[in-house]
Amino acid sequence: MTHTDLLNVNQLTVQIGTKTLCRTLDLTIRPGEIWGVLGANGSGKTTLLHTLIGLHQPLSGTILLNNKLVTSLQPSHIATQMGIVFQENPTHFLQTVFEFCLTGRYPHMGLFGMPNSTDKEITHQALNMMGLADQHKQKMHTLSGGEKRRLALAAVLTQNPKIYLLDEPTNHLDLRYQHQVLTHFKKLAHENQASVIMSLHQIELVRQYCDHVLLLFENGNIKQGSTHNLLTETHLAKLYPGTFA
């Protein structure tokens, strides 16, 4: 591991029940990199992202965040370094769009978690970036699926972590917003040196936005490398049997 590595995964094995989802994974994430995680349904993309952020205990191996074991860090510290957008949309209907988005600032707030004017300003900016500025006073239950997705993405933007874990970020999004959202994260990676690890199902989006890919095969085997070298028909045929034959 070098001093520039943000995240370093060593010999990580992840299981759900008796099923091994990834076996002895070694992975290094550096600032500014965008990784795409690809695999069939049930291959363990979500579980891997949850393991990286400490929500799921691995069977073996270590995860180092800025040279420190993730398991030794307080959740409050991890939250300033890593943020996640879950696969499911938020469902807390009684909140307004602004209130939900503001929750992303929680790791940066003081002892009693009271937002200040900077938190509010950052929240407005994030909503603006995700095209939700006009809806900031709306109740969440009035949003469409795509708008809720953009809201979840806006909330992780307010969190402003160094590593973004995005679990199927383009779910529910129309074509325009799929590109708009991913372009924004690419810009974040290049300009702010943030790292993005996202699971995606659209191969074309992976080709267009990810520098590196991590392929999760059904038997727990893994391949990783540059998008250009790894997204070949042979690998894709193995990844999605019967589709690329």
Partner: peptide, 10 residues
């Protein structure tokens, strides 16, 4: 899960 990833000691 959301609370933990936002830094709460759940």
């Amino acid at each position: 899960k959301q609370a933990q990833t936002l830094g709460m000691n759940v």
